[in-house]
Write a protein that binds this DNA or RNA. Structure first.
Lengths: 205, 205
DNA sequence: CCTTAATTGTACCTTTCCGTACAAAAATTC
DNA sequence: GAATTTTTGTACGGAAAGGTACAATTAAGG
């Protein structure tokens, strides 16, 4: 959480906007339009602030994008991963994960797909810092899943291998969603994939 | 193949550049920099032509991007898919496919990852024509694989389901490559995934 | 060799890009 | 309530964006 906080302890004119709301709006613009495809007018328009406010709070366009990724992880990614703890079996955990993310990837009030899986991953090809950040996010997710599978103890194969397969498939779901797949498309695919992974015992959703 | 051909039957001043080479150069720029991230100067610089020549031959930036996708399919995608016909078993076919694409995704003289899987898929979120084009490419690949699996006859599960799993994993390999994974990283992942899919009988590469 | 057809290079156009200067406004501190 | 601190809105910069006009150039056709 950088968000250029000048230690506003009460002095001076108060902020006329909610930084978190503004950041959320910026995130959605980047999510739809991509990094270079998003202009400062796009941003200030959606955030309902003007440029000096944007620069005072978020430094510049690139820093704002980094903050938007962080915000995405905090508000969308992490909660979805936390839900993994609800599953009592490996199958339940994976099915729940897939069903959670197919909903997020096709949500009506967000752009299609995943900010990180599409926009940031594209940018990663030409921005080293982004590349490392996103690669670490993916690794962490795999590590978290691996750990959880070990705790549950009923994985029918090496937990790391299973986690890799699950996260890889999740990445492909993000791509499909970006390409216009509906939630039920994705759920049907997830069902079939789950049956390949663990045998056929029931639907995801 | 659109490539604004004014039926150059010999009249007028001859072209001073090779359109296919120029298109190939443009493809690589888009591949690295993304669609909006690529400027006309980037393009004319890499293609070694000036703007009027670019516009005469390729209409505009967006049409050039579409031509670049077509060129990518023709020179990289289709040949990789054609290699599928060499495999004598389902396992051989899948292993060969993974090993072919991990090489392509990490080739030293190309940008990392896949033009279509990263750049075009990102753009698909805000460009309907691109979205449909890319979605059809993915579907065709799945259909081709399904067909091939049926011909081979030794798939241990529904061929369509298997093809979906394979193409989905291929999409995730493209994302990982964009995030900096090496060829051996990807091959190791592919090995593990193949063992999950078909049981453990040998390495991909 | 003159006309016609096509491409080339330069120079230019308008718009938009990202970023900032600056004065007015709104709060706190003394 | 004057001084101080911070944010706001407007307005402006220089650079780069995508795209085109136009004259010069190079070929084939007659």
């Amino acid at each position: 959480m950088k968000i250029n906080q000048p230690a506003n302890r009460g002095r001076g004119r108060p902020l006329a906007f909610d930084p978190t709301q503004a950041l959320d709006a910026a995130m959605r613009v980047f999510w739809l339009k991509g990094y270079e495809g998003t202009s400062l007018s796009d941003l200030t328009g959606a955030m309902r602030i003007n440029k000096p406010s944007l620069y005072a709070r978020f430094d510049d366009k690139r820093a704002l994008f980094l903050a938007a990724i962080e915000h995405y992880v905090a508000t969308i990614g992490a909660p979805n991963v936390q839900k993994l703890l609800e599953g009592k079996t490996v199958r339940e955990t994976i099915a729940g994960y897939f069903s959670t993310i197919t909903a997020a990837l096709t949500s009506a009030d967000s752009p299609p797909g995943c900010l990180i899986g599409s926009v940031a991953t594209d940018l990663a090809g030409r921005d080293e810092e982004i590349r490392e950040l996103v690669a670490n996010l993916v690794s962490s997710t795999e590590a978290f899943l691996t750990q959880r599978f070990k705790e549950l103890g009923d994985a029918p194969m090496d937990e790391q291998t299973l986690a890799e397969a699950v996260v890889s498939f999740a990445q492909s779901l993000a791509a499909r969603a970006r390409l216009g797949a509906t939630q039920s498309d994705l759920n049907a695919r997830a069902d079939r994939f789950l049956s390949v992974l663990l045998g056929t015992d029931g639907p995801v959703s």
